[in-house]
């Protein structure tokens, strides 16, 4: 599972599995996870409807996994499910219905909810727009997730791009990345590298952030200009945040970071 270099893997019990094969999916997952050591975080997307939901929950409470992805998350649905999950499970709320957008602030406040995930395809099937790589149709949905997530300190993960066209994927990645998402779901292993590259701090950006902090330290000032750009407190903070992230990814050597 780890060989495709994703940071986490979601095993799907919901839309990827035929109704007639739900039991097999549970059985295969249980057998796999109990017999193999896996070095990435594993999440399971459970079904949103009976008769599968209860059995899914019973199983995931016994599995060695990081958490659960709740499809079609709304405030009411999460309130109903959260008490049934074992306490150690991280809950990833998949936001993919119009209603959820009016409850985002409350969903993001729920403590077991660690991340907000955007599910654009289900959303489009209800709202009726046309989604393309420009991202226009889901611009609001993306921004709404960012605001709610940031307001309550939750990780925000962008929706997958379903076509395997590499150029379109690049465009779609850029949309979410520009708006501020922390990462993105892939729907095919071949998408992982492009996503990792886009969301990893680039050497050029790291260098730029390091220069801002170096200048800040040298001048002892919160306001100065660097490379034709006005730098003040929020820009310094951005550089700091950026380097924190780069360090988290192991992209910084300690000595030039601790300024």
């Amino acid at each position: 599972m780890e060989i495709y270099e994703a940071d986490a893997v979601i095993i799907d019990f919901e839309d990827a599995v035929n109704v007639s094969e739900k039991m097999e999916a549970r059985h295969l997952t249980e057998s796999f996870l109990n017999n193999h050591t896996v070095s990435v975080d594993i999440y399971v997307r459970i079904n949103s409807e009976e008769p599968f939901l209860d059995e899914d929950i019973t199983l995931i409470n016994q599995l060695p996994i990081q958490g659960v992805v709740v499809p079609k998350s709304t405030e009411a649905f999460l309130k109903k499910l959260l008490p049934k999950f074992k306490a150690s499970l991280d809950v990833l709320a998949l936001i993919e219905t119009p209603n959820a957008f009016f409850e985002l602030n409350k969903i993001a406040q729920m403590k077991p909810v660690k991340s907000l995930l955007l599910g654009a395809e289900d959303l489009m099937s209800v709202i009726g727009g046309i989604r393309d790589e420009s991202g226009l149709a889901i611009n609001y949905a993306r921004s709404a997730l960012i605001m709610a997530g940031r307001a309550h300190g939750k990780t925000i993960i962008d929706t997958p791009w379903v076509s395997l066209d590499e150029n379109q994927l690049q465009e779609d990645i850029k949309c979410g990345q520009t708006l501020g998402f922390d990462g993105k779901m892939a729907i095919h292993p071949n998408q992982v590298i492009a996503i990792n590259e886009a969301f990893s701090p680039s050497p050029k950006a790291i260098e730029s952030a390091l220069r801002i902090l170096a200048m800040h330290k040298k001048k002892g000032s919160m306001r100065f200009s660097l490379d034709g750009k006005m730098v003040d407190k929020p820009i310094i903070q951005q550089a700091q945040n950026f380097l924190d992230k780069a360090k988290q990814y192991g992209l910084l050597s300690g000595e030039n970071y601790d300024l």
Binding site: E5, H188, P189, N190
Partner: peptide
């Protein structure tokens, strides 16, 4: 190759 495994080997 479009095979994810093959591409992983190549990388």
């Amino acid at each position: 190759t479009k095979d994810p495994l093959g591409l992983k080997v190549a990388r």
